[in-house]
Write a protein that binds this DNA or RNA. Structure first.
Lengths: 143, 143
DNA sequence: GTTGGTGCAAAATGTTTGCACTAAT
DNA sequence: ATTAGTGCAAACATTTTGCACCAAC
C-alpha cells in the first residue's frame, strides 16, 4: 500500500499511536465520515477512545495536509484525498462521495465580481445515491 | 420596492410583526449575514429581541421559500435571493457575496458516478474581497 | 377571540480546550 | 528522559425546543 496510516503519520511528522492508526483506518474504510462516525468506528475496537482525540487527530492531520476537512452542509467531513476534487452528497442518506476529476472545469472562466481574487472553487452536487434510488434505504437527512 | 419585508411576509403566509420586518430589513442591509449578525443588527433597535426569534423567523421564511439558507463553511448564512445562484467568500474577512449568474454552467455536464441522480449543484468560490486586498482590513476568518 | 409569534431559559449538537497521566520517540 | 498524545470533563458556539405571555389577524 502506497500510503498506509503509518506512512501518513510519519509524513506529517506525527507520532504513530494505535489511536491515530485506527483513525486513519476508519478514514480508509468509510467514505467521507464525520468525526463522530470515525469515533464510533474506532471506539468499537478501542472502547476507551476519546472523541476529543479523534478531533485532535483529524485536526492535526488536516493541518499537515494528510487529510482534508470538507464542509458539507450540516457537519464537517474528512477525506484522505488531498488533491483538488469535488463532492456529491445524497439527500436521503447523507452519504458523500468524490466526484471524478474533470479535465476542463469551465467554472474557472466564470465571471467574478470586480476586485475579487479567487483562489479556489468548491463544488457540491446533491442528489440521490444508487443505494437510495434502488429502494427505501437508510437514515434521515432529507436536505 | 418590488418585494419589501411586508410583501415577503404576506407571500409566505406569515404574520407581519415588527421583529420579522426588522429581520428582513437586516437581510436587505447586510450581505449574507449569519443568524447572529441579523440578531445583533436587529437588537440595536429592538433591545428585547430574542435570538431564538431570529432563528425561528429565518427558518419560517426559509420554509416558505422567501429566504434561502446557505451552508458556507463555518456557519449558516441567509440570502433573500431565492433563485439558483452561487456564492463567493472572502478568506480574510468572511464576507459572502453573490456570484453573477452564469448562462452556461458547464459543470452540469460533469461526469457523475454511475447510479447517482444529481438534482442540484452548489458552487462556492473562495478568495480575497476588494476591501481586503486593498489593505489590511477586517476580522479573523483565514479559511 | 383565536392562533400564531415572542422572549426567555434550557436542551441538544458539534467542536475545542485545559490538565494530569501515559506512551512514542 | 523528553515531549507529544491521550482521556476525561468542562467550556464554547450554534441552533432548536418548551412554555407562558402577548399581539396580529
Amino acid at each position: 500500500m502506497r500510503h498506509g496510516p503509518v506512512e501518513r503519520l510519519r509524513a506529517a511528522g506525527l507520532r504513530v499511536t494505535p489511536q491515530r492508526v485506527a483513525v486513519l483506518e476508519a478514514l480508509e474504510a468509510c467514505s467521507h465520515p464525520t468525526a463522530d462516525e470515525v469515533y464510533r468506528r474506532v471506539a468499537a475496537r478501542y472502547p476507551q477512545m476519546g472523541l476529543a482525540t479523534v478531533y485532535n487527530t483529524l485536526a492535526a492531520l488536516a493541518r499537515q495536509g494528510q487529510v482534508v476537512a470538507v464542509n458539507i452542509a450540516e457537519g464537517r467531513r474528512y477525506d484522505l484525498r488531498t488533491d483538488p476534487h469535488q463532492h456529491i452528497r445524497c439527500r436521503r442518506c447523507g452519504r458523500v462521495d468524490d466526484l471524478p476529476p474533470w479535465e476542463d472545469p469551465g467554472w474557472q472562466a466564470m465571471a467574478v465580481p470586480p476586485g475579487w481574487a479567487v483562489e479556489r472553487w468548491t463544488l457540491l452536487a446533491e442528489g440521490v445515491c444508487p443505494a437510495c434510488s434502488a429502494g427505501a434505504t437508510a437514515a434521515a437527512p432529507s436536505s
